[in-house]
Amino acid sequence: MARLDLLHHALLWTLMCLFFLGSASEGINTTAGQDVTLTCRAPNNNNIIVVEWSRADLESEYVILYRDGHFVPDHQHPSFKNRVDLQDRQMKDGDVSLILENVTIDDNGTYECRIFTRGANCRKGAHLKTDPISIISLRVVDPPDKKIITAESGQKVTLTCRAPNNNIIVVKWSRADLEPEYVLLYRDDLFVPDNQHPSFKNRVDLQDRQMKDGDVSLILKNVTINDTGTYECGVLMREIRSWKPISIIHLHVDPPGQRGGVIRRRHGLLAGLIFLLSLLAFLICRRHKKHNQESQSTSS
């Protein structure tokens, strides 16, 4: 029986060692200006003394160091000051994920998560700094170009947006000035009405609810001047697991009749110009004809 207990404990310690020595590697793609969560989870939070996030190209400087319930600012790379935090400082269930705010292209790189533990390690009674338990490659690209659309009140407008593929979990159309309410949220083939701005209820739809070829364009019906603003299209994709803004469109809506009035005025000016040119041509031809007749009379 004692041998079975020893074997059981040995197997348990071996599995824990293998967990620490193993690492999970993943990749995240996002755009500049977004907040990103780099996930990392230890077996539990009872034995964690220190959490360290690092990036290989920063050498001795680190992204974040958290020790005994406090952040340690010494040797932190300047570019991460006031931009990083742990998702849960209590590290419940071993969650030591990193939040990186307002990312830029300078944040591109491979991030490693390590922890120091007390007691629960391969050598009883010693503190252990693990090999990386999470390795994440972060790729940040510049935000998409902004498009401008002009419409007249009462029209139906399509705001185009296309994802790289149709492996889409959630589609979200938002407008910055409506924060935190949104224009449209589509999840698991259903529209989610919670927190949708009241002015868009029953006026918005996706151009293709099957999202073929990644088409997540928005249809906005019966637009008004209150719909003027900057719209952002974002998707959550299975392979990325973070919000990816892929289209930014500024919509300008003219008051009723204004756009048509401008067009009618332009048409009136063009008609007037054509009339004046025709009259001028008639007068020139008439004068030229009269001149020819006088020349013939003189020669006879």
Rank of each mutant, 00 (worst) to 15 (best):
K201S: 09
T224H: 12
K221A: 13
L206K: 01
E239V: 04
Q196W: 08
K244R: 00
R203Y: 07
H197Q: 07
I225D: 10
E239Y: 07
D208L: 01
D208I: 00
S217K: 09
P245G: 05
D194M: 04
D227S: 14
I246N: 06
G214A: 07
Q207T: 03
D213R: 08
G214R: 06
M211Y: 01
P245M: 04
D208R: 01
N226P: 02
K221I: 06
N222G: 11
L218S: 10
V216I: 15
D215T: 07
G234M: 09
D213P: 05
D208A: 02
K212V: 02
T224L: 13
P245K: 11
R238A: 06
T224R: 11
S199H: 06
V235A: 07
D215I: 02
T224W: 12
S242Q: 15
Q207H: 13
V216Q: 06
D205F: 09
R241A: 08
L206T: 02
D227F: 14
N202P: 05
V223D: 15
Y231M: 14
S217V: 08
M237L: 11
G229D: 12
N195S: 10
D208C: 02
Q210P: 00
D213K: 11
R203I: 05
M211T: 00
E239L: 06
N195A: 04
V216T: 06
I246S: 00
H197F: 02
D213N: 15
E239M: 06
Y231C: 13
R241M: 09
V235N: 00
D213Q: 12
Q207I: 07
Y231H: 11
E232G: 02
T228H: 06
G229P: 10
Q196G: 07
L236Y: 14
L218D: 12
G229S: 10
S242D: 15
G229W: 11
N202I: 03
R241Y: 00
S199F: 10
